[in-house]
Every structure is written in structure tokens, then in C-alpha cells.
């Protein structure tokens, strides 16, 4: 039986994403963020990509659900779970070969959720100074937490300025709940 270590090494060796792919999916995430901004929502775009398939995408749903945990990443992870259920696929097996592309650094909660789901790679735009869980407030991507899933690799800073600009534009508009 493969140990946790060798399983991880094997996954890392066999699992990589080219720069071209990163660019392509991040530009999709930015389109989503722009659409959100135009409809007056938090401009964060996020995609979960497995192979060449988008298995989850989300936008912030905090206000309509009155549930402050409904960040874009959490919504996208729920879609991934539904996708696995429909295809009768093993969730862990799918997640271990899935990449999250998101325009803003995931918050502490979402970063922990990504660990719990065993997502190995997160590509993001700008950092999230207020809540960021991939180095800004805490670093959950590398923290030693044996009961909280697996660590993940981050590729930060993709079109960061653009992502910041969108957030600034949004926060200049009125936002009653300060999320």
C-alpha cells in the first residue's frame, strides 16, 4: 500500500499545469469577476478545473443566502461535489487532480476548505490582506495540520493589479454588510 508521502510524490510528479493553461483559465476567472462587478457583486471569479473540464465555478452568495460562508470558492466546491455525485466518482480522487483558479487569494476559511478537500494547486491573482489564508493573514497552504487535509501549492500574483482595481471599484460603491 502506498504511504501518504509516496502517494503525494506520485501525484506531484504526474500532475502539472502549463503556463498556457494557467493563463487560459485565469482569463476565464477574470471574465467572471468582471461580470460580477457589472452586476454589483463582489468581483471575485473562481473556477475548479479537472483535466480540461470546469467542474465548479462560483460567485459570492453571502447576501442572498444570509450565510456568511458562501464565498465563491465554497460555492464552486459544492458544484464539484455535485459533479462527482452525478458521475459517481470518488471525490478525493477528483480533487487531487483539480486546480482552483481564483482572482483573489482565498480567505482563511476557504484555504482550510481547500485543504480538507485535498485540492493540490491554487492559482490566484491579488493577495487578500484582510482575510487571506495563503500567506496574508495566515498560511494554511503549508501549515502543519495533520487533521486538516493536505497542504497545497500556490501560484500567486497572476494579473494582480487588475484584480485589485476591480475590488477597489467595488468597495467604492455601497456595500451594506461590509463583506
Amino acid at each position: 500500500m502506498a504511504t501518504e508521502e509516496s502517494r503525494k510524490a506520485e501525484l506531484e510528479a504526474g500532475f502539472s499545469v502549463s503556463d498556457e493553461e494557467m493563463k487560459k483559465w485565469m482569463s476565464r476567472a477574470f471574465e467572471m469577476a468582471r461580470e460580477a462587478l457589472q452586476s454589483g457583486e463582489v468581483p471575485v471569479g473562481c473556477l475548479l478545473v479537472h483535466g480540461q473540464e470546469v467542474v465548479g465555478k462560483g460567485r459570492n452568495e453571502v447576501n442572498e443566502t444570509k450565510n456568511a460562508t458562501r464565498h465563491a470558492e465554497m460555492v464552486a466546491l459544492d458544484q464539484l461535489l455535485d459533479w462527482c455525485r452525478r458521475g459517481n466518482l470518488d471525490v478525493r480522487g477528483v480533487c487531487e487532480r483539480t486546480v482552483l483558479y481564483v482572482t483573489v487569494e482565498p480567505c482563511v476559511m476557504c484555504a482550510a476548505a481547500l485543504r480538507l478537500m485535498n485540492v493540490p494547486l491554487v492559482v490566484f491573482g491579488c493577495s487578500n490582506e484582510r482575510f487571506g489564508g495563503c500567506g496574508s493573514v495566515l498560511d494554511l497552504s503549508s501549515a502543519e495540520l495533520p487533521d486538516t487535509g493536505t497542504t497545497f501549492r500556490c501560484v500567486p500574483g497572476h494579473r494582480a493589479d487588475e484584480a485589485v482595481e476591480m475590488l477597489k471599484t467595488f468597495y467604492k460603491q455601497e456595500n451594506p454588510n461590509g463583506e
Binding site: A68, T69, C107, V108, M109, A112, A113, L116, F131, G133, L138, L140, L145, D147, T148, E179
Partner: peptide, 13 residues
């Protein structure tokens, strides 16, 4: 609570 839940409680005030 784990770190996900603890941060969810921050977000939930």
C-alpha cells in the same frame, strides 16, 4: 473548531 469553522465564525460575527 478547526480553522475552516473558526474563520466561518469570524465571517458570521
Amino acid at each position: 473548531p478547526c480553522v475552516m469553522c473558526a474563520m466561518a465564525l469570524v465571517h458570521s460575527r
